[in-house]
């Protein structure tokens, strides 16, 4: 709506208000760890996007004479047993790992928000039935199902997105539904109803903007858990399969030869850990910023 205000008509002397989003951004800016997290994530995304142009070596470029070499000026993070540059491989791996993280989270977000909003807004029996379905799905051992799916249908990356997304949407649906339910009881929503606003207007203008905070926070915290799941499956040999590469796969290769060539384990492991750290710090920071009451200090 604010965009629809004719700018010239806003009185010049009107004091500028601080919206809750601006407030949150001010709080977030004071949180060094969260900013660091944000910086790391943005850098990683940039690197992942640019990898084909900036990678120092080709993805499959081998140097069998070199073999597994420790870090050096030519190969900053060393090479693997085929003499392939580790930095290059980690960079290519980041494309897959980050993509899985974002796309699977996106799937979870879409299903979860839709399901949760409908259940919360409809209320009554519709809500009871929808949430009972979520309860039943919650009770299913999904981790095992994913392993099973991967075994049965082969290591298909698309399936991986869907499978992970299908697990993670449950919590999202619960969060959104709880939020919508509590908002519906708020008097400003009742006020909107008594003003005669249409259902869609109420959802768009009064419900969605107020559920956004927790959804953003949970999304940020879902990405690392999805990446972890992918790495876990790849480690077991059930996720991404060669010649594609992901951090989990690199770690599992690293484990095989860690006695002789520890850097092959350390570098991909470190990359994964730092990314997870960054995302978690960002998520925690966003929670503190968007919901100052929950952080209590």
């Amino acid at each position: 709506m604010s965009s629809s205000i004719p700018a010239a008509e806003i009185l010049e002397y009107a004091e500028k208000g601080t919206s809750l989003w601006q407030d949150a951004w001010i709080r977030l800016r004071k949180n060094t760890l969260a900013l660091f997290g944000l910086g790391v994530i943005l850098t990683l995304c940039l690197i992942a996007l640019m990898t084909p142009f900036i990678a120092p070596y080709g993805y499959e470029e081998q140097n069998l004479l070199l073999g597994a070499a420790p870090p050096s000026a030519e190969h900053w993070l060393g090479t693997d047993i085929f003499g392939r540059d580790m930095l290059t491989r980690i960079m290519y791996g980041s494309r897959v790992s980050l993509m899985v993280g974002f796309i699977a989270t996106g799937v979870a977000l879409a299903i979860g928000v839709l399901w949760g909003t409908i259940a919360g807004y409809a209320g009554g029996r519709v809500d009871a039935v929808m949430m009972r379905i979520v309860d039943i799905l919650y009770a299913l051992p999904f981790m095992i199902f994913i392993v099973l799916l991967m075994v049965v249908f082969g290591r298909n990356i698309l399936l991986l997105f869907l499978a992970i997304g299908a697990v993670e949407w449950l919590t999202m649906a619960r969060i959104v539904r709880g939020q919508v339910l509590s908002l519906r009881r708020q008097e400003f929503v009742e006020a909107a109803v008594s003003l005669g606003l249409s259902r869609w207007t109420i959802i768009r203008r009064h419900l969605i903007p107020n559920t956004l905070g927790p959804v953003i926070v949970y999304t940020t915290l879902t990405i690392p858990s999805v990446m972890l799941l992918e790495a876990f499956l790849s480690f077991l040999g059930l996720g991404i399969q060669p010649p594609q590469s992901s951090w989990g796969l690199l770690i599992s290769y690293g484990v095989e030869t860690m006695e002789e060539y520890p850097w092959l384990l350390l570098f991909p492991g470190l990359t994964l850990s730092i990314t997870l750290f960054a995302l978690n710090f960002l998520g925690d920071g966003l929670r503190d910023a968007l919901d100052p009451k929950a952080s209590r200090d």
Partner: peptide, 12 residues
């Protein structure tokens, strides 16, 4: 502990 998954923690 959260950012160091078991398949990394174990080998290390």
């Amino acid at each position: 502990g959260i950012c160091m998954p078991s398949f990394l923690m174990g080998p290390l």
